[in-house]
């Protein structure tokens, strides 16, 4: 099971956190600090796994961003490594060649997409096409609601003229 997902920039800035196991607030800060220390310090050409507090952090670097997922010691590491890549590909498809800035200003989108991919710390959907369709559906719902709201406020505005 995945205990948490962290996106950390090379400068140690946190871009996304998602906790599937209950970590109290104080603990979360500590965990992020420890993991950043471990992962950012690692050089290139090393393996993608770091052992940490009896668990394992599987991480992968994309440009300036580190994607980290923490799993149990005996979980399948490579499987999780490819979940990371699957997530990145999905983001890429949604944003169209995603970069760190996309994730900074649209961090809520990153959360929406992650929620379609993972649930309860397990992989929920492995088809990028399906995820893309679901996210598009959500966006459409939000858009419709906005238009409705606009048209109502237009009507009110016109009526009150």
């Amino acid at each position: 099971m995945i205990h948490f997902v962290l996106l950390i920039s090379r400068q140690g800035k946190v871009r996304l956190t998602k906790w599937y196991s209950a970590y109290p607030q104080k603990e979360r800060t500590k965990v992020i600090r420890e993991i950043s220390g471990e992962v950012l310090a690692r050089g290139p050409k090393l393996c993608n796994f770091v052992e940490w507090r009896g668990l394992k952090v599987v991480y992968r670097r994309y440009a300036s961003l580190y994607f980290c997922m923490c799993i149990n010691q005996d979980d399948n590491e490579l499987e999780v490594l490819e979940i990371i890549h699957h997530y990145v590909e999905t983001l890429d498809r949604y944003f169209g060649s995603v970069c760190e800035l996309d994730l900074i200003f649209n961090f809520h989108k990153a959360y929406y997409i992650l929620d379609e991919l993972l649930l309860a710390g397990e992989l929920q959907e492995s088809s990028k096409k399906t995820v893309a369709r679901l996210i598009a559906g959500q966006d459409a719902l939000v858009e419709t609601a906005k238009e409705e709201a606009n048209s109502i406020s237009n009507i009110i505005a016109q009526a009150s003229k």
Binding site: Y23, Y111, Q138, A145
Partner: peptide, 20 residues
């Protein structure tokens, strides 16, 4: 009642709060 608010409510609650 509306989707956009509900969506934000659910997702942010799941990020901010712990199970207890």
């Amino acid at each position: 009642p509306k989707y956009p608010e509900k969506q934000v409510g659910y997702i942010v609650t799941a990020c901010l709060l712990n199970e207890n």
